[in-house]
């Protein structure tokens, strides 16, 4: 029986500092696989967020810039405007992209910048020890919502890709995937590829949010963390493409 070789792309083929069972490792590998398959590994700049996403800035042997916390949307704008034919992909967490960076994230989408935004949504501030973020679920206990998130005074978890799809007619692509199973991972990779292809063809702004486990801060084993995503997160944060390529107004 013939079997296909599966090898981690050289760019990310190195030890990562992420916690055991963290989703970042899978997502960063998927981005590189997608770039490899699209023959774009030598045509990429990553503006990288602050938080666990910073780990990607540590050893990634390609053009990258570690941005001020929350500002990757603005940095990506500057990079893309002066390099229209280079892929600019921001890699950020939910705290970076949505809490502190919502103005830059929102406005880059609003202007329909020709960039791709990858947001790792693990429903908390992972790097700083698991504080509440804009994506923390109602009732979820974090180190700053010790009795569980009270949405009546802290707001409800934000669904940004849906907002992009609904509110920004020019945006090219908006999707949410997850890493809970081989099938979901394969689907997510296709979403990432779609987003990158949208950028390659100058179709407009693209965003892929990833529901990603944070076993350490959730106080769960990696397997239980995947179950939590399936049972608790997906009903609120649906998986799918909210805006497909070709649906945008030009």
């Amino acid at each position: 029986m013939a079997t296909k070789e599966r090898k981690v792309p050289a760019l990310v083929d190195k030890p990562m500092d992420f916690c055991p069972g963290c989703g970042h490792g899978v997502v960063s590998r998927l981005i590189m696989e997608a770039l490899e398959e699209l023959d774009q590994l030598d045509n990429i700049i990553f503006p990288i967020g602050v938080g666990c996403s910073s780990n990607l800035g540590a050893g990634l042997e390609c053009d990258r810039l570690h941005c001020c916390h929350g500002r990757a949307g603005a940095v990506a704008t500057g990079m893309k405007r002066v390099n229209p034919d280079v892929l600019v992909v921001s890699y950020q967490g939910d705290g970076d992209a949505y809490n502190i960076g919502i103005a830059e994230t929102f406005n880059a989408a609003y202007r329909n910048e020709d960039i791709t935004v990858i947001v790792i949504n693990n429903t908390n501030f992972g790097m700083t020890g698991g504080q509440m973020s804009l994506t923390t679920m109602e009732g979820q206990k974090t180190s700053t919502s010790v009795h569980g998130r009270d949405c009546s005074i802290t707001g409800y978890p934000i669904r940004f890709p849906e907002m992009v799809a609904r509110e920004f007619p020019g945006a090219a692509y908006a999707a949410r995937g997850t890493v809970t199973s081989p099938a979901q991972i394969n689907k997510l990779k296709q979403y990432i590829k779609n987003a990158l292809e949208a950028q390659m063809n100058h179709e407009g702004y693209s965003i892929v949010e990833v529901l990603s486990p944070c076993p350490v801060n959730w106080g769960m084993t990696p397997i239980k963390a995947m179950e939590r995503i399936e049972k608790e997160l997906i009903p609120y944060y649906p998986i799918g493409e909210f805006k497909k390529r070709g649906e945008n107004q030009k």
Binding site: V8, K14, M16, G25, V26, P182, I185
Partner: peptide, 9 residues
């Protein structure tokens, strides 16, 4: 596919 740490080839 599922390994976050690139253990398998």
């Amino acid at each position: 596919t599922v390994c976050p740490d690139g253990v398998f080839h």
